[in-house]
Structure formats: structure tokens, C-alpha cells
Design a protein around this nucleic acid. Structure first.
Length: 214
DNA sequence: ATCCCGAGGG
DNA sequence: CCCTCTGGAT
């Protein structure tokens, strides 16, 4: 089976059996999505959604957030992973939006990653979700699932995986594929004990094949 | 114990 | 490349 066949199988499968998202990040505009994605690192969407309404209420936009103090924002983020870092990141991010980007969320990856708390994964999420750019955000799920399925080969970094994935997935499907792989990783292809018997992709899965031969 | 839609710094 | 940050869910 060629790599191209492998991608086609995955595309065909998910086109018929799109995984259902139980929870998704809540947002109403680019600023809100940016805040939510920064907060989502190492944290469930559900918990992020529990904290963002209060943040959006008190800091409706970059202007307000750029003037927030650490002590005032920290309590709103206290229950999320890395609250110290994220509090500093959010305030610094808003300040840079005001000072360097006219208070607007920039829509290129290279600009976005200049913002505090925004790395490549976050920048790819923003540009693909808001602006429909054919970028693949590689998080822990996408990285793991792609490797197991053989969509990526010897990728040692998220960037290496990203370049392989955008090369093989048709542009118009990258956004969908991103979501497919994340949800598959969240509900079926778990990091610890993947539910291979419930997986419709096991017939092409390298990880499953290896399990059988072991 | 181990994992969550990572980023920054050494 | 490595390490640290660091709360909640399971």
C-alpha cells in the first residue's frame, strides 16, 4: 500500500464516519479564539469553556486585556494548567496586538508566532479556522495518530509532521483532516490504551499491525 | 500514575 | 536537543 493509498483510505473512512465532537472551544471572534487556544494547552476544551466567558466579559477586546494586571487576571485562570504562564502570555499578547498590530489579530503564521504564548500550533489553528488557510496544526493528537496510521514517516517534530501532512492531504481537506485526527485521537486512538477494536482504520494502521505481530 | 488541541527558554 | 510550567480528569 502506497502512502497515497493510505491517505485516501483515511479520507474515505472519515468522510463516511466523521467523529463527533462533544465539546469545542467557544469563541465569537478572532480575539476570543486566540485567547481560548492559548488557554487550551494541556487542558480540556471543556475546562477552557468554563473560564472564557468571565474573561471575555471583563476583557471584551485586546484594549481591555492589555491593561489588565496580573493579580486581576490570574484568578480567572487559576483552575487551568500553567496559570502563571498563561496570565503573563495573555496580557503580553494583548499588549503586542495593541502596539504592533493596530489592535487586530494578524492572520499570518509568521506574525502570529511573534505574540507571547502563541507558537506554531496555535498560529496554524487561528489561520485555518478564521481565514481558511490550508495550514495543519499539529498537536499531540495529530502527531500521535498520524504516526500510528503511517500518514507521517519518521517525523520527530511537529513541524516535520506538519510538512508531510500538508503535502499529502488535498488543500481543501486539511482543515477537516485536522479535526478528524484530533477527535480520533481524543476518543479512539488514545495515547495510553488505544481502542483498536473500535477503530475503523485498524486495517491500514501500522501501530495495530505491530501490536498483532508482537 | 498518566494524559490533556504547547510554549518558552536553556 | 532537553527541561520547566502546573491543574484537573480519569
Amino acid at each position: 500500500m502506497t502512502k497515497k493509498d493510505r491517505y485516501q483510505f483515511v479520507i474515505d473512512y472519515f468522510s463516511e464516519h466523521a467523529p463527533d465532537a462533544e465539546t469545542e472551544l467557544f469563541y465569537d471572534n478572532p480575539y476570543q479564539l486566540l485567547v481560548a487556544v492559548i488557554l487550551s494547552a494541556q487542558c480540556t476544551d471543556k475546562r477552557v469553556n468554563l473560564t472564557t466567558p468571565a474573561i471575555f466579559d471583563r476583557y471584551p477586546g485586546p484594549e481591555a486585556l492589555s491593561e489588565a494586571t496580573f493579580d486581576e487576571l490570574f484568578p480567572l485562570i487559576r483552575s487551568i494548567s500553567y496559570p502563571n504562564n498563561k496570565t503573563k502570555h495573555l496580557i503580553g499578547m494583548a499588549q503586542m496586538l495593541i502596539h504592533d498590530f493596530n489592535g487586530e489579530v494578524p492572520m499570518t503564521v509568521n506574525e502570529l508566532i511573534k505574540l507571547p504564548g502563541v507558537g506554531r500550533k496555535t498560529a496554524n489553528v487561528i489561520t485555518s479556522v478564521i481565514d481558511n488557510q490550508p495550514n495543519m496544526a499539529v498537536d499531540t493528537h495529530v502527531f500521535r495518530v498520524s504516526a500510528r496510521l503511517g500518514l507521517t514517516t519518521r517525523a520527530k517534530t511537529p513541524l516535520q509532521a506538519e510538512l508531510q501532512l500538508i503535502k499529502y492531504f488535498p488543500k481543501e481537506l486539511i482543515h477537516k483532516a485536522h479535526h478528524w485526527l484530533i477527535l480520533h485521537g481524543r476518543y479512539i486512538c488514545l495515547a495510553r490504551s488505544p481502542k483498536c477494536e473500535a477503530c475503523g482504520l485498524k486495517s491500514i494502521c501500522l501501530y495495530y499491525k505491530k501490536l498483532q505481530s508482537a
